[in-house]
Structures are given as C-alpha cells and as structure tokens.
Amino acid sequence: MNEIAFLGIGFPAALSNLSISALATAAEAPLNYFLHSYGPASRPTMILGWVLAVVCLAVCIIIGILLVAAITRKRQATDSRTIGREEEGLGWIYIGAGLSTCVLLALAVYAMITLNAIAKPATAPGLTLTVTGYDWWWKVTYEDEDPARRFVTANEIHIPVGVPVLIKLNSADVIHAFWVPQLAGKTEMIPGLMNQQWLQADVAGTYRGQCSQYCGAQHAHMAVEVVAQAPANFKYWQETQRQKAALSSAVSIADGMKLFMERCSGCHAIRGTEATGEHGPDLTHLNSRHRIAAGLRANTPRQVIEWVIHAQEIKPGSRMPSISLSPSEMADLAAFLATLN
C-alpha cells in the first residue's frame, strides 16, 4: 500500500517542488509569457493562462485524491470470487460529467471574451510595419505613404512605448511564425498570404522574440528583438534609420568597401551605395543593432568578422556562406563595416 500512497501524495509533492524551483528562475527567461506581460495584447492572455492553470491543477488534484481514495478506501472483507453489481455508480458519471461540462462552458466563454479583448487594439495602430520571414532572419520594413520615408532593417524592431503597432506578416520562403511572447501571441508567416497581428509595449525595454514554426536547419537560431522606446527616442531612431549610409570618402575604408561590393553586395544592401542585394539583411545601419545573425551573436566588430569568415560553423546550413578572407582583407572589411552606423 506504500506504493499507492506514493502515487497520491509523494508524487504531486515532488512535482510541485520541481515546478516551484523552475518558476523561481523563470524571471530570467526572456521568452517567459506565463509570468511576464508588458502590453495589452498579451496581458489578458497571461491572466487567462493563470486561471486555466489553477483550474487544471485543481482538476488534477481532485481527480488524484478521488483516485487514491477509490483505491485505498476500506472495504468489508468478502469472498474474492464475489462480483459487484453492474448497475451501480451511474451517479458518478452524471455528477462528474455534469460538473465538467459547466466548468468547460465557463472556460470556453472566458476564452472567447479574452480572444475578443486581444483581437484588436483599443485605438487605431499608430505605426504599421511589415515583417518578412527569411531562412533564418527577419526583414523589417517600416511603411510610409511616402516611399522615400520607407526604410528597411533586420532582426531588430523599434517601437514607441504605449502605441499599438500593426505588424503585417509575410514570408519569402517557408512558413515561419512571429512571436514576441511578452508582448503578444504568435502568428504564422505564410508565403502567398499577408497575415497581421498587433502588439504594444507599455514599458520601455528590449523584448526577445523567436520563430516558433519549424522552418528548417536553423529554426533554433531565428531570434528577433523588439526595442520599445519613449516616443521621442523612437522618432530619433526612425529618422536616423531613414538616412542613407553616410560613407566617408576616407582612403582607409576604400579597400574594404571595394571588397564588400565584390563579395557581399549580391545579397546585402547598403542604401546610398551600389549594394542592393535583397537575399540577406540590409546593412545600411548595421552598427545600430544589438545583435547579428538573428540574435545568435552580439554585434561587436570582432564577432562580425568571425561571422563573415565562419558563418557555416556558427550557424550550419545558414544562407550566409563562410567567406575566406586574408588577414589584410579582414582588416579592410572590418574597417569598412565599422563605418555603417
């Protein structure tokens, strides 16, 4: 009978210990949406999650107790060959299924109310941008009625705090999913289809996102960052991003630039130069971004060069080839890339 007792008491206790210790560290998890929400597109969902989790845990505990009690309860000694009567016990089913139905209906209604609450922002979106999924990075286009004011960046999305942002989602190749869990749920990015979702950050900060739809070799390394800034800071960022690359004509970067045009411009664009490639991220303001390779590495001059020459080792299967460069070429390219502010 010890075993049975373990089933009932020891086991859930062990589990809940595990859960508590795991959740204690959860604050450090940048994708944790169960305990953290920073905007109206995800907060109702988080609360729904809590309610559901509590209800579900309660159901598990109640059933667990019933099960253990059913197994261990005292019974009168009888001949082992006696067989119980079939007709008994229907009350269990009526009551059990009846209560379950009520709980489920209530949850269904609550889920619908929540869905309605997050379906649309309370006010019209103050900013529209298009995110296009690529193997395995994100192209971010800031829309504007004036084509000259439209600009493109990659893997890092800036938004103003407190403003609902409409995000149109598309894919250039396979299906990806855009997901910044602490701001909103995920939406698939399907080629041939323009999906959309909205999000809003109420607190300034950097929110991590991740492709959540399996998309091939480097699905694991397809992260995105949403940087929520005070509206003034955002405006400033937006203005600087609209600028074309301000390249100095210094001799020190001429070799690096030539190298870039020969080896990199087929895939990467730098606005204001002849580099107009569209297969890889736009590098016009490369150094304004925190991370490279869709979140895989910090954006430092050393890491950038490491990435250029060892892309296939850092991110096997990535569309970025490992480029073999001599030490002097490395230095030239690094010098050139360092000017892309």
Partner: peptide, 22 residues
C-alpha cells in the same frame, strides 16, 4: 487527466497563440 486538462488549456484560443509550437 493531466494530458486532458493541458489539452483544455491549448483549446483556449488566445492562450494557444502562446502555447502552440512550444
């Protein structure tokens, strides 16, 4: 029962926007 109730959680559409593919 555990598998069933976690299924109920994923059936709640808005929560599933978070849960699915995790």
């Amino acid at each position: 029962v555990i598998g069933g109730v976690s299924g109920v959680m994923t059936a709640a559409v808005p929560l599933d926007f978070q849960l699915t593919d995790t």
